[in-house]
Simulated scan of single mutants.
Amino acid sequence: MTGRLLYDPDCGFCTRCAGWLEGRGLRASVEPMTPELLQSLGIDEDRALREIPFVADDGTVTHGAAAIGRVLATGPQPLRTVGLLLCHAPVRWLANPVYRWVATHRHELPGGTAACRMPGPRP
Rank of each mutant, 00 (worst) to 15 (best):
residue 98 V to E: 09
residue 48 A to Q: 08
residue 16 R to S: 15
residue 99 Y to E: 11
residue 48 A to R: 03
residue 72 L to P: 01
residue 35 P to Q: 09
residue 90 P to S: 10
residue 26 L to W: 09
residue 108 E to W: 10
residue 69 G to D: 04
residue 68 I to W: 11
residue 97 P to R: 02
residue 84 L to G: 12
residue 41 L to R: 15
residue 58 D to Y: 14
residue 107 H to A: 07
residue 123 P to Q: 02
residue 78 P to I: 01
residue 6 L to G: 05
residue 119 P to A: 07
residue 43 I to V: 14
residue 123 P to C: 03
residue 4 R to S: 15
residue 86 L to G: 04
residue 95 A to M: 04
residue 9 P to W: 06
residue 41 L to I: 09
residue 88 H to E: 12
residue 40 S to N: 12
residue 69 G to E: 07
residue 43 I to Y: 03
residue 46 D to V: 09
residue 42 G to V: 01
residue 123 P to L: 02
residue 102 V to P: 08
residue 120 G to I: 00
residue 78 P to A: 03
residue 61 V to T: 14
residue 27 R to K: 12
residue 55 V to E: 11
residue 51 E to I: 00
residue 33 M to T: 02
residue 68 I to D: 02
residue 9 P to I: 02
residue 71 V to T: 13
residue 10 D to A: 14
residue 121 P to E: 15
residue 87 C to G: 11
residue 29 S to I: 00
residue 36 E to G: 06
residue 1 M to Y: 03
residue 112 G to N: 11
residue 100 R to E: 15
residue 12 G to L: 03
residue 104 T to W: 15
residue 24 R to T: 08
residue 22 E to Q: 12
residue 94 L to G: 15
residue 102 V to K: 08
residue 1 M to N: 06
residue 87 C to F: 01
residue 122 R to T: 10
residue 55 V to P: 07
residue 28 A to P: 04
residue 97 P to A: 04
residue 89 A to C: 11
residue 58 D to R: 01
residue 11 C to F: 15
residue 67 A to K: 04
residue 30 V to A: 05
residue 95 A to L: 02
residue 39 Q to E: 15
residue 21 L to A: 10
residue 59 G to Y: 10
residue 78 P to T: 01
residue 1 M to C: 04
residue 102 V to A: 13
residue 38 L to T: 08
residue 67 A to M: 03
residue 57 D to W: 01
residue 111 G to W: 05
residue 107 H to N: 10
residue 88 H to A: 08
residue 74 T to N: 07
residue 77 Q to S: 11
residue 95 A to W: 07
residue 37 L to A: 13
residue 12 G to F: 05
residue 63 H to K: 04
residue 20 W to S: 05
residue 65 A to R: 02
residue 115 A to N: 15
residue 70 R to C: 04
residue 66 A to G: 08
residue 38 L to S: 09
residue 96 N to A: 11
residue 25 G to Q: 02
residue 109 L to S: 12
residue 89 A to E: 15
residue 93 W to N: 12
